[in-house]
Amino acid sequence: MTIGDQIIPFSPVPDTELSAIAKQLRRDIVTMISTAGSGHPGGSLSAVEIITALYFKIMRHCPSEPGWIERDRFILSKGHAAPALYAALAESGYFPVSELATLRKLGSRLQGHADRTATPGVEMSSGSLGQGLSFGVGTALAAGLNNKKYRVYVLIGGGECNEGQVWEAAMSAYHFKLDNMVAFIDHNELQLDGTNHDIMNIEPLGEKWSAFGWHTIEIDGHNFNEILSSLEEAKNIKGQPTAIVAHTIKGKGISYMENKVEFHGKAPNPEETKKALQELA
């Protein structure tokens, strides 16, 4: 919020509330994708705890002033997880929660892939994989050049690590010593057409990030304690960026979606939606 010209950043919630917020984001995600009739539930659900921790606990941001120059930046590189981002933006106050029902509708600000020119709080238009980390490098470089203290968080999919540009960016973030930058890898081990292992083996993923010069931490990406402590650790790392390889479950929180590749890009039908919302009650 703002008082006069003064920006009052979003107040972090107590740690004890994070699980309930995550559950609400999951309800939002399932409802909006179901209403839209299309979307990507699996990879949205796997990223929920990471996004919840960032928007409701870690990041300095101001929903009523999305362009606040001092804000920490969250860059959704895996753009198909836009429903998770939209849910976090709505629940933290960037736009009304009721607007989530317009996902993928004609004229809506909430399209299938996020559009920064339309949606408040979206830092980067994404949807084609592999580009968010480079964007984060530019944003993090600018912080140093502009004498700003903001931090940059980029969320990358595990399958997205197939893209060569991810590694160009990884190399450059280390080269430029961007210790104001964190990459989360939402490592749910599935991609569009199967397992990472079968499609394009990205292991050993943590070792790859380490080899590229990043301070690398491996965590359970659904455990808030581990997410928060890894982010605290990252703040104290100097001279190199931090990669947090978050081991997650695609479709997390909904029994019939968990670890099911078919829910990468398929909306639940009305019956499935009902069941999902019962599980998330």
Binding site: Q131, S134, F135, V137, G138, N146, Q165, E168, M171
Partner: peptide, 26 residues
Amino acid sequence: SRQYINAGVAEQNMVTIAAGLALSGK
């Protein structure tokens, strides 16, 4: 020197870094 960056032999990365810089006022 603060306005010059050699982005290495990685043009795709260079373009998207430029985008990040541009959205940060450059």
